[in-house]
């Protein structure tokens, strides 16, 4: 799913949508961090956890436990 993830295109599309300014001097580092995140995502997404896997966080309706 991270294949085809183009960090340059993500910055161009997402920064204005999020109301974020990415100054020119910051752009290479932001792009590099996105590329690193995509590499991490590739590792995470190759693990077939399946439809029924539950995420780690569990909501407790009553708030803090006793």
């Amino acid at each position: 799913m991270s294949a085809g993830f183009d960090p340059e295109a993500v910055v161009d599309a997402m920064a204005p949508l999020l109301g974020l300014a990415v100054p020119a001097e910051a752009r290479p580092a932001v792009v590099a961090n996105l590329a690193l995140a995509a590499a991490m995502a590739a590792l995470v997404l190759e693990d077939p956890v399946g439809d029924h896997a539950e995420p780690a966080p569990v909501f407790t309706p009553a708030g803090a436990r006793p």
């Binding site: 993500v10 910055v11 997402m14 920064a15 999020l18 974020l20 990415v22 910051a26 580092a29 932001v30 792009v31 961090n33 996105l34 995140a37």
Partner: peptide, 8 residues
């Protein structure tokens, strides 16, 4: 720069 990337 890491946080900016994280937002996206």
């Amino acid at each position: 720069d890491r946080l900016l990337a994280g937002a996206m």
